[in-house]
């Protein structure tokens, strides 16, 4: 769906994007992550043809943008980080304009449908100048959905939203993906990325450092699973028995909690429970804690850790 090859952008002496090779498959939700100033927005602008690359190629839907400009633009929906609206229009007029622009069929019905999805239907006759930041963000989403694009490029789609709004947008993202749409999402809310994305690409200082599905990415960073057990009737025999197991790397009891570290190749919670029970312990709670995306992101970007092979593929 999206493919870049050697994509580079220089502004004078500054290299904003350096030899970027990203690949987004059809029907997936791709998270595009990076610290501030990493080059995410510049990359998105180049994908949309609004910044000319210094070098490299871009293909959208397998086609070159310059050769198929209008056809491609009609199939993309873009939500920018900040919403720029015509404040003297109402929501209905605003979406009506874009419905004309994209030649949407049954525009009246479609407008009501998208406004309903973002919970703004009862505000459609109000002037946009009176909308809050969150409402503007949701209206932007409505605009993106209006022409039913095949590819949605969303830059911070959940910023400025309250928890209800965040959930609404998440639901929309999942619904669209279930319809077969491809989503390219750039966001700093990593918990949401973790919940929604199939694959992520991590960029820092203009370079792509990692591009992989979440599980594999985390496995590359951390090779242990930490299981925290709250139990009754602890004895030292439990810890020593656990440590004898081949998949256990350590078992430490501290502050009424038993922390067991295992390898990442399987889920060993059942075996651990059985060992504890065999020594008379009673498991009150057991939580498997794997490395979060946030932790992985911080490690990768702080250490400038490239998880890509020389050919730019995930290792």
């Amino acid at each position: 769906m999206i493919q870049t090859e050697g994509l580079t952008k220089k502004f004078g002496g500054l290299t904003a994007v350096d030899d970027l090779n990203i690949h987004v498959e059809k029907g997936e939700i791709y998270g595009f992550l990076g610290p501030n100033g990493a080059g995410k927005t510049t990359t998105i602008m180049m994908l949309l043809g609004m910044e000319r690359p210094t070098a490299g190629k871009i293909k959208l839907f397998g086609k070159d943008l310059a050769q198929n400009y209008f056809e491609i633009k009609r199939r993309i929906g873009v939500l920018s980080e900040f919403q720029f609206l015509y404040e003297d229009m109402t929501a209905k007029e605003y979406l009506g304009f874009f419905a004309d622009f994209y030649e949407v069929e049954n525009p009246e019905r479609k407008i009501d449908e998208v406004l309903s999805r973002v919970d703004l239907l009862d505000r459609k006759h109000e002037l946009l100048g009176g909308y809050s930041k969150g409402m503007k963000q949701k209206l932007g989403m409505a605009r993106v959905l209006l022409h039913d694009p095949d590819l949605l490029i969303l830059d911070e789609p959940q910023s400025s939203l309250d928890p209800y709004g965040i959930r609404e947008i998440r639901d929309i993202i999942m619904e669209e993906n279930q319809k077969g749409k491809t989503l390219f999402i750039s966001s700093h809310i990593l918990s949401e990325i973790e919940r929604t994305c199939h694959r992520v690409g991590i960029i820092s200082n203009g370079k792509l450092l990692a591009e992989d599905d979440l599980t594999h990415l985390k496995h590359q960073i951390a090779n242990e699973m930490e299981i925290s057990v709250e139990l009754e009737g602890y004895s030292d025999a439990i810890a020593s028995s656990l440590e004898e197991l081949e998949f256990v790397t350590s078992a430490v009891y501290e502050d009424s909690r038993l922390t067991v570290k295992t390898t990442m190749d399987d889920d060993y919670r059942a075996q651990i429970s059985r060992v504890i029970a065999s020594h008379g312990g009673i498991v009150l709670s057991m939580v498997a804690k794997e490395i979060s995306l946030e932790e992985a992101f911080v490690i990768i970007t702080e250490q400038n850790l490239s998880l890509l092979t020389k050919e730019g593929q995930a290792s």
Partner: peptide, 9 residues
């Protein structure tokens, strides 16, 4: 910018 996300040059 928002206009140019769409089918316009």
């Amino acid at each position: 910018e928002v206009l140019f996300y769409g089918p316009i040059d």
